[in-house]
């Protein structure tokens, strides 16, 4: 049985079609990444899974329950909103107990202490939320999300605004949830994170599903059409090379997207004639690149 089954749902706000005929299946025990530009329908989809709002049409089943109607909130789900969702004037311990209580968990004090220690926040129970830094608050929010041991964890932008150390702490915690059998859905703008952590990646754009599958299957579709190049010195005009469609300049290295028919060897020869080649790699496009291809300005122009 799947954790989430979405069958052709639609949701319209006024004249805006936020989610358009979307279907999706999230298998249990997986980490599912939701990506897509701002305002493309990610949060709306997550809220429908959470039963905070209902689709206009279509069906959603979450952990085997019909989630299309009613608002009996599900205690088997944990949800972390996109921004902080904590009462600023309350003590950290109290907020966490309150959220645990809302999920039907009593006597959570011991669990709270364990989680705070785990996420390197020992002894903050008696401090006010407003005294927490952004990273600390995010970790506290994370604890509030998982305290009641949910079977399905939904995280909206869990890594935004975290430094690498805190990011690793949360990442490890997420992976441990998965190891313990939970299903994790998270949305992110960080393609690197999505590539590294997600078993499946789902991309929504203008309310419609544009990518869905394992990272491998997605990249497979695009093929090895990318060259990653590092040269000694500057001044090479990559656009003049045969078969190069697009250049992505990262400063220290460049990514070139080439035509399907183009020959990487020919391009390498050309490059070698113009500068010292320090690195040359034929590779699949990164998720970042795929994202930009779908939702970038160029794609937008074609679409409209």
């Amino acid at each position: 049985m799947s954790a989430v089954e979405i069958d052709s749902i639609c949701k319209t706000f006024g004249t805006l079609r936020a989610v358009d005929n979307l279907s999706l299946t999230v298998p249990r025990g997986t980490v599912y990444g939701f990506i897509g530009p701002n305002g493309s329908g990610k949060t709306t989809t997550l809220r429908m899974i959470l039963r905070i709002i209902h689709p206009d049409s279509g069906r959603i089943r979450v952990l085997g329950e019909d989630a299309t109607a009613g608002d009996a909130a599900n205690d088997r789900i944990g949800y972390l909103p996109e921004e902080r969702g904590l009462y600023r004037k309350m003590l950290v311990g109290e907020v966490l107990e309150f959220y645990a209580g809302l999920k039907g968990l009593r006597n959570a004090r011991e669990d709270i202490r364990r989680w705070l220690d785990r996420l390197q926040l020992p002894g903050v129970e008696k401090k006010k939320v407003e005294a927490m830094s952004k990273g600390m608050a995010q970790k506290i929010q994370f604890i509030a999300t998982v305290l009641h041991r949910p079977e399905l964890v939904i995280l909206d932008e869990p890594f935004s605004g975290l430094d690498p150390v805190n990011m690793d702490v949360i990442k490890d915690a997420v992976l441990e949830l998965k190891k313990n059998g939970a299903t994790v859905i998270f949305s992110t703008h960080d393609m690197d994170v999505a590539e590294k952590m997600c078993d499946f990646v789902f991309m929504i754009f203008k309310g419609q599903k544009v990518l869905d599958g394992t990272l491998e299957s997605i990249k497979e579709k695009y093929g090895a059409d990318t060259l990653r190049v590092r040269l000694d010195g500057n001044g090479v005009s990559f656009h003049e090379l045969p078969g190069v469609q697009r250049v992505n300049d990262y400063g220290r290295f460049q990514e070139l997207r080439i035509d399907k028919q183009a020959d990487p060897q020919a391009i390498l020869q050309q490059l070698a004639g113009r500068a010292r080649v320090k690195h040359f790699e034929v590779t699949q496009p990164s998720l970042h690149d795929i994202f930009v291809r779908i939702a970038g300005p160029a794609a937008q122009e074609v679409a409209s």
Partner: peptide, 19 residues
């Protein structure tokens, strides 16, 4: 208003029916 601005209401609505 605080709950709405701090996105607390989203967490609350994910845990308890609005009524």
């Amino acid at each position: 208003i605080e709950e709405k601005m701090q996105k607390i209401s989203e967490v609350l609505l994910g845990s308890i029916a609005p009524f």
